[in-house]
Write a protein that binds this DNA or RNA. Structure first.
Lengths: 189, 189
DNA sequence: GCACGATGTATCGGCGCGATACAACTGATT
DNA sequence: AATCAGTTGTATCGCGCCGATACATCGTGC
């Protein structure tokens, strides 16, 4: 069940700001997650339809009244949708920091409360540290068995994970500093 | 058609060295591509079956004769399989440097001729440079529109791609140096 | 007037994943 | 000797998401 249904979270989170139509949702997410890593229409549109029939979204057929600019289906969160978003943001368990899902989770951090943010970051960091260990293990175990190209691939992969750990460490520190700032005597007093 | 059927290339390339059974194929690839990024059995076994029925692989039911250690299906490349591998390695067009497929391609570099290696590396580098441009573009275009977390996500994504470009530059240089070594004045005249 | 690119919605085939089940072997523990 | 856990080993199922593809509309330049 690690398949966290990225789309669900991504769509709910994006529509939380304001109602949008499919094409625009994709553009927003694309700019946040990077031009690659953008969600495809092939999964976006079916997901939107599914979410409507699940009662999470409602449609505002823009232009249907005015007659101009037809064929633009604007989606907005229903009450159930808002609730579901809150649940998803708060859950933050296990799969929140697994692989691909993490990017989307992180992109929704402004809508996530501080405690959950820290929990996710620490979870992700632990996961990356595990990988680091696994990779080193693998490299050590079969050192001479691999060719130069495979060795390069492993080295590059290792470095990439190391960078992410450093990045996460910085983010975690920032979160803690911000929390300390809020719990400051000057603030609370 | 960008879906390069990673499995196909990965399996053919792995079996090129010597016949193996599914479990072992997965272990080998896992150690090359990293413990994450490992191909799942859920796609491996069906792929093996498909390739047998396509005539690319043949099975040697190990232990069927001796009676010991049943249930170990050893696959080996057929003549057609060897041919297909050559085709796949030589094709190297377009999808060879697209996203996920690249890792697998690279892992098979020892079986790829020098000219194709260089072509793939240069293609990948160009692709990454494009992305770099797209990301910078996106960041510039909507600078103030995003929150701090999204900005961090973009920054980290950008850095990651930059690292890969540097890595590719080094690899390309190595390839060229090796080629120069072979095309020495003494050789090419 | 017309071509071309961006906007906009939609469907289809299928790859690869995670979950799950099951069987045989191996080693440790008691 | 019995049992229990971990590894080896094959297999299937549901389905998320992707890439390809097909249209329709709109703005703009030539």
């Amino acid at each position: 069940m690690a398949r966290t249904d990225m789309l669900l979270l991504a769509i709910l989170g994006t529509l939380a700001e304001r109602p949008l139509h499919g094409y625009e949702i994709r553009k927003r997410l694309g700019s946040q997650l990077g031009p690659f890593r953008a969600l495809s229409y092939g999964s976006l549109y079916p997901a939107l339809k599914r979410m409507v029939s699940d009662g999470l979204l409602a449609v505002d057929e823009e232009g249907a009244v005015t007659g101009t600019r037809r064929s633009r289906i604007v989606y907005r969160l229903t009450h159930a949708g808002i609730g579901r978003l809150q649940d998803e943001l708060a859950s933050a368990g296990a799969s929140a920091w697994e692989d691909d899902a993490f990017d989307v989770r992180f992109a929704m951090f402004t809508r996530t409360d501080a405690a959950t943010r820290l929990r996710i970051l620490e979870g992700r960091r632990m996961r990356m540290a595990e990988r680091l260990e696994e990779i080193s293990e693998g490299v050590r175990a079969v050192r001479e068995r691999h060719d130069a190209y495979t060795a390069e691939l492993q080295r590059h992969g290792l470095e990439r994970v190391e960078r992410e750990v450093e990045w996460l460490d910085q983010l975690i520190e920032n979160e803690r500093a911000a929390t300390r700032g809020k719990d400051d005597p000057a603030d609370a007093g």
